[in-house]
Amino acid sequence: TGIVNVSSSLNVRSSASTSSKVIGSLSGNTKVTIVGEEGAFYKIEYKGSHGYVAKEYI
Rank of each mutant, 00 (worst) to 15 (best):
H50S: 07
S25Q: 15
R13K: 08
T33F: 10
S8M: 11
A54L: 15
I23P: 00
S49H: 10
S20K: 02
Y52A: 00
G48W: 05
A16V: 06
S15F: 08
G51R: 02
K47C: 14
N29T: 08
K21T: 14
V12R: 00
V53T: 02
T1Q: 13
T1E: 13
I34E: 00
I58F: 06
S17C: 08
K43Q: 08
L10M: 07
I58S: 02
G39A: 07
E37G: 05
N5Q: 09
Y57D: 09
Y42M: 04
L26I: 11
A54C: 12
T1W: 10
Y52V: 01
Y42K: 02
E45W: 09
K47T: 05
G48P: 05
V12L: 03
A54T: 07
I23G: 01
N29R: 12
E38Q: 08
Y46G: 00
Y42P: 01
T33R: 10
G28Y: 14
A16W: 04
N5T: 12
E37F: 06
E45G: 04
I23K: 04
Y46P: 00
Y46F: 14
E45A: 09
V53G: 01
G36S: 08
V6Y: 05
T33L: 10
E56Y: 09
S9F: 12
Y42Q: 02
F41S: 03
T30C: 09
V35Q: 06
N5D: 07
R13T: 11
S25W: 13
S14K: 13
N29D: 08
E56G: 07
V32H: 02
V6T: 14
V12H: 00
V6M: 09
N29H: 13
S7F: 06
G24S: 03
S49L: 11
G51I: 01
V4L: 07
S8D: 15
A40R: 09
Y57S: 11
I44D: 01
I58R: 01
N11D: 15
V53I: 08
F41W: 12
I58W: 04
E45F: 08
K47M: 15
S19N: 14
A54D: 11
V35F: 07
S20H: 05
S25G: 06
K31W: 14
Y42S: 02
G24P: 00
K55L: 04
S8Q: 12
G24N: 02
V4K: 04
V35N: 04
N29L: 11
N11H: 15
V35H: 05
H50A: 07
S15M: 12
T33W: 10
A40C: 13
Y57K: 08
S20A: 14
S8V: 13
G51K: 01
I58N: 02
V12M: 03
K43I: 14
Y46I: 04
I3D: 04
N29P: 07
T30N: 06
A54V: 10
I44S: 00
E45M: 11
N29F: 14
R13W: 15
G39V: 03
V35E: 04
H50M: 09
S49N: 10
F41Y: 11
G51L: 01
K47W: 07
S8F: 11
I58T: 03
S14Y: 10
K47R: 10
I44T: 01
R13E: 03
V32S: 01
G36V: 03
G36H: 05
K47S: 09
G28M: 13
Y57L: 08
T30G: 05
S7D: 12
Y42N: 02
S9V: 10
G2S: 06
H50D: 06
E56R: 10
K55P: 01
N5G: 06
S15I: 07
G28C: 12
T33Q: 10
Y52R: 00
S8C: 14
A40E: 15
T18L: 15
G28R: 14
I58E: 02
A16K: 03
Y52H: 02
S27D: 12
A16G: 06
Y42G: 01
S17Y: 06
E45H: 08
I34H: 00
I58G: 01
G51A: 10
E56I: 13
G2P: 05
S49W: 07
K31L: 14
R13A: 05
K47F: 11
E37L: 07
S8Y: 10
T18V: 13
N11M: 12
I34G: 00
S49D: 09
S20T: 04
K47L: 14
V35Y: 07
S49V: 14
E56N: 08
T33G: 04
G28H: 15
G36P: 00
T18S: 14
V53M: 03
S20W: 04
K31C: 12
N29M: 13
F41M: 05
V4M: 05
I44L: 02
T18Y: 14
K21S: 10
S25E: 11
T33V: 14
V4E: 03
G28V: 11
G2E: 04
G39H: 06
E38C: 10
Y46V: 03
I44C: 01
E45S: 07
G51F: 03
H50Y: 15
S17F: 06
I34W: 05
S14E: 15
A40G: 12
N29G: 15
K21R: 13
A16E: 02
I44V: 07
E56S: 08
K31S: 12
S27M: 14
I58Y: 03
L10T: 12
V35S: 04
I23C: 05
G51W: 02
T18P: 15
I3W: 12
Y46E: 01
S20D: 04
S49T: 12
S9P: 11
K55N: 03
S8N: 12
E56Q: 12
S25V: 15
L10I: 15
K47A: 11
G48H: 07
T18N: 15
N5A: 09
G2F: 05
N29I: 06
S9M: 12
S17D: 13
S7W: 06
T30Q: 12
V12F: 01
V35R: 05
V53Y: 00
Y46Q: 01
E37H: 08
A54H: 09
N11F: 10
Y57M: 09
I58K: 01
K47D: 12
L26A: 02
T18G: 13
S14F: 11
T33M: 10
S9I: 11
T1L: 12
G51C: 02
K31I: 15
Y42L: 07
